[in-house]
Simulated scan of single mutants.
Amino acid sequence: MSLALPLRFTPAYMSTVWGGRRMEQWRKTLPEGPIGESWDLADHERGMSVVAEGDLAGTPLRELVCRYGKDLVGPSHDGGDFPLLVKLIDANDRLSVQVHPDDRLARQLGVGARGKTECWLMLAEGGELFVGTKSGTTREGFERALAGGDVASQLNRVVAKDGDFFFLAARTVHALGKGCLLYEVQQTCDVTFRVDDWGRVGLDGKPRQLHVRESLDTIDFSASRGAAIDAREVPHPAGGSVRKLAACEYFTVEERRAGHTAGGGNGICSIVTCLAGAGTLATAGGSVRLEPMTTWLVAAAAGPWSATAAPLAGLRLMVAQPA
């Protein structure tokens, strides 16, 4: 069966005013200009994933989901698109201050059937980011700061470290900043309400559109947590170590470090991203090569998978599953 082997997809690159060039060290075909995002796994019109190799080469992820359904995704799939989107992000400048609706608000505002809860696994030292409002912030105070050009004073500012993990429930106001390199796992949704853009212009030389009213109606001013999640590294029964990073109603995410480890086999697809090291990712259908900053989708029907490092290499993996 075509789903027996892990699937790799051609990345969809996004040129952004705040993007950088760090992906070039892993991606030899990186387009010219400032590249802010690589959509490594996406079932979305803005950046549809297409199988890169094997029997299914050239097949869009949307077609795979329609054709295989639960065999690809798992028992929670009840039609529609693939539920998760995985991005590699390189910020050479601040992103806009922004917020995403939750499922209920997205439907209420008529912007889609799904909101956007997301999470970030940081991969470099020193990136600046803003997560949530400071304790005690009110809508009125936030509006005054916004009007005065000082919205940053209302936000929790963090200087990130490699390995830091942040969980952002929908309706949490946030902004990535200069120096951030990270993988993001999120609901499949591209609805963003831009609160403030630091007074700059876009790649076309014009100010980017703001959505102040929608943003203020969306922001959860009680979402004040700005610190990284405290996820301790513990032994994994299948080998190596694990940090259990997130388990919410939409996805689970963990980080593995191992010479050999395994997963899957629970009837749900696995998204396996190699963050560092090299080796092989194997299922009963065969094996593929793991290289840094590559993402593979192991279909639910493929069963258990195992990852084995090359000699002296070691593996650092991010593993995500839809809930």
Rank of each mutant, 00 (worst) to 15 (best):
L3E: 07
P6S: 14
L7N: 15
F9P: 13
T10S: 09
P11K: 08
T16S: 11
V17L: 15
G20F: 11
R21T: 15
R22V: 11
E37T: 12
W39T: 07
D40Q: 14
H44M: 06
M48Q: 08
E53N: 10
E63Q: 14
P75F: 09
H77T: 06
L85Y: 05
L85Q: 10
A91F: 03
N92A: 09
N92W: 02
L95W: 13
L95K: 14
S96D: 07
R114M: 12
K116T: 04
K116H: 04
T117A: 03
C119K: 00
W120E: 00
W120N: 01
M122T: 06
G127L: 01
V131E: 02
S135T: 10
A147H: 13
G148Q: 14
G148I: 01
G149S: 05
S153L: 15
Q154V: 09
R157N: 09
V158C: 12
D164A: 09
F166G: 04
L168F: 03
A169C: 11
G177S: 11
G177F: 11
K178C: 12
C180H: 05
Y183A: 11
Q187Y: 13
C189D: 13
V191M: 12
V191H: 13
W198Y: 14
G199L: 08
K206E: 12
Q209W: 02
L210C: 08
L210A: 07
V212E: 06
I219P: 11
S222K: 13
R225T: 02
G226Y: 15
I229T: 14
E233F: 03
V234D: 15
A246K: 04
Y250I: 03
Y250L: 08
T252P: 05
E255L: 07
R257N: 05
T261G: 02
T273H: 02
G285R: 01
S287E: 02
S287L: 00
V288T: 00
R289M: 00
L297N: 10
V298F: 08
A299I: 05
V319G: 00
A320M: 05
A320K: 05
Q321L: 08
P322S: 13
